[in-house]
């Protein structure tokens, strides 16, 4: 794909590309933030002769579901109340403290009675998952390469000692 032009959206969220030759184009917005979380929007639009294409997109539609289950290495039982932090991979440092990881997190929470926690996260964005003890804040485990496709669900398992 060849980059034709870039525009900034105005205060109403609108980017006007004006007159274009009839064609299929790809639109990419990689810095759209909702609730301080950046989403990656990429979609195709068709421009037709003599027509005005007014495309409108809700940024958080570019999401998928990340369903994480945490189990014990020792007996494979689900573990509840495990702290879970979802961090953009480019902001994650395995040596960071839990507090530091929480500051750069996009999402966080704790596992439920079945060891499960579910997040709606931006699609096509690389994340690290960091597990910690909610009483001591000690790190349990992390994984450095999680992502979901738009509208898809990823079921994921992590074990801790």
């Amino acid at each position: 794909n060849i980059l034709l032009e870039t525009r900034l959206t105005d205060p109403n969220g609108l980017a006007d590309f004006g007159d274009l030759n009839p064609n299929n184009y790809m639109l990419v917005a990689d810095s759209a933030k909702v609730n301080n979380v950046a989403y990656l929007v990429q979609e195709y639009v068709q421009v037709r002769t003599g027509a005005v294409k007014a495309k409108e997109t809700k940024v958080t539609d570019y999401s998928g579901t990340f369903a994480l289950t945490v189990r014990s290495y020792n007996n494979n039982q689900p573990l509840k109340n495990i702290g879970v932090i979802i961090i953009p991979s480019n902001k994650f440092n395995y040596a960071s403290t839990t507090a530091a990881n929480l500051k750069v997190a996009d999402f966080s929470g704790v596992t439920n009675d079945t060891g499960l926690i579910t997040f709606k996260i931006p699609s096509n964005k690389q994340y690290s998952v960091y597990l910690y003890n909610t009483v001591t804040n000690a790190s349990y485990n992390y994984n450095n390469s999680v992502s979901v496709q738009k509208d898809a669900t990823v079921n994921y398992l992590m074990n801790i000692y």
């Binding site: 205060p11 980017a15 274009l20 184009y25």
Partner: peptide, 26 residues
């Protein structure tokens, strides 16, 4: 022979998101 294209990005409430860079590719 041309057409026009506008593109609007919103949050969940339909409010426009300002100052977002949008790139157009052929």
């Amino acid at each position: 022979t041309s057409g026009k294209l506008t593109y609007r990005l919103t949050d969940d409430a339909g409010k426009g998101l300002a100052n977002v860079k949008v790139s157009l590719f052929d």
